[in-house]
Design a binder for these strands. Sequence first.
RNA 1: GGAAGGGUGGCUGAGUGGUCUAAAGUAUCUGACUCGAAAUCAGACGUGGGGGCAACCUCACCGUGGGUUCGAAUCCCACCCCUUCCGCCA
Length: 424
Amino acid sequence: MLDIRLIRENPDLVKSRLAARSPDWAPVVDELLELDTARRAAETERQHLQAERNRLSKEIGMGRKNGQDTSAQEAEVRGIGDRIDQIGRDADAADSRQRDLLLGIPNLPHEACPAGATAEDNPERRVWGEKPVFAFAPKDHTVIGQALGLFDFEAGAKISGSAFTVYRGAGARLERALINFLLDLHTTRHGYEEISPPLLVHAACLVGTGQLPKFGDQVYHSAADDLYLIPTAEVPVTNLHREEILKPGQLPVRYAAYTPCFRREAGSAGLGTRGLIRMHQFDKVELVKITTPESSMDELESLTADAETVLQQLGLHYRVIELCSGDLGFGSAKTYDIEVWAPGQGGYLEVSSCSNFGDYQARRMNLRYKDEDGKNRFCHTLNGSGTALARLFVALVETYQQEDGSILIPEALRPHFGADRIGA
RNA sequence: GGAAGGGUGGCUGAGUGGUCUAAAGUAUCUGACUCGAAAUCAGACGUGGGGGCAACCUCACCGUGGGUUCGAAUCCCACCCCUUCCGCCA
């Protein structure tokens, strides 16, 4: 959520920064400005009336104590009460409309965010490793997985429908080994606290991190209990500190959480994604940080590096791109995507998206900290996948496939997997 | 799911219709005393909004949302959460 004061005091700055995303936002900013003026006028009048009511009510109290007739004042206060109700309705309506508009406006891209309109304009920041060379034609993970019995899409469809799968045997074990590998890496070497959160959350959490109200059609919802299945661990983990004021020594907060993620992917069915690449349910280890504004950009760099370590340890070729202003996610001010090479796909797969949200999420969830001067300020929040599992699984299986049909397990994963190879 | 009790500032806790401007204690901070500390004394000490160049003024907030009333922390209704017991259950 943007600061209404910033919009009020510097609307042109807000408009120009939002224009870096898309040209659609200028009229919304104008509507917001008008609404803000009307809202404050109504609010001021209401408060004057309330002050008058408080004063007269106190007089009535004292008058009654002294045995005076107070019926005239009572009638007057009754009239004031009616006007308070009337104006209060206007003020409340303007207030809730203003909040709705603010919740629907994306974050301002950071000044350092590269300008651009689409994914085509995303600059590549660095590349690690090289594309592996095969003496044979590398197969797609679905082919390898079927031959080795690692997962079963037909069983997934039978139980839950399309875009669900069942991992089994060595496939299920590999998935579990990867989860343990990732959690161990981030908690013992990178200093994150491990969190295992609920997978069902209140709507307020999704508002806090930005999925609601705008992207409600992308999350699963249990109507009977009004709970939502999390689309990412970012939601429960960042919201651990919703409505809190953190003490000076508490920052930065660093959390790592493994959870399954649930996404309806409404509107993207049948978009040509095969196998494990786009699923309604997938596993992910998420990294979440809560920091001061001064340190959030440095923390983004180290968060991204922590995610990259995963691919380095597994010996997987990847590149890091930075999202341009037009491709930036709704709440993000600056984002790096990490894309791993998948030989069977002949392309890169996004396995991590590392973002600095600035104070955008913190405002939505009223997450603050007390600075050295004792002032309450909004925190900065960050998160990034460390990493998504299904696509990591794809890259791993396709990169380490052997001509005889087996899969070599990279050194770093062997203690967790308990063998050096699958098949043959 | 049923029954009972409860939800007030960082914490403990008083307040059952009108100087509540929410007592008191405790914690914290500042100052005094002290060589220093402890103890003691004094002061400060919630969050958000509106108005004002400012000093400052003002409104709202006692789990949440409604209602009654001239006036609600206080009375009424609904809901949420916590504790204990019962039921069900991995």
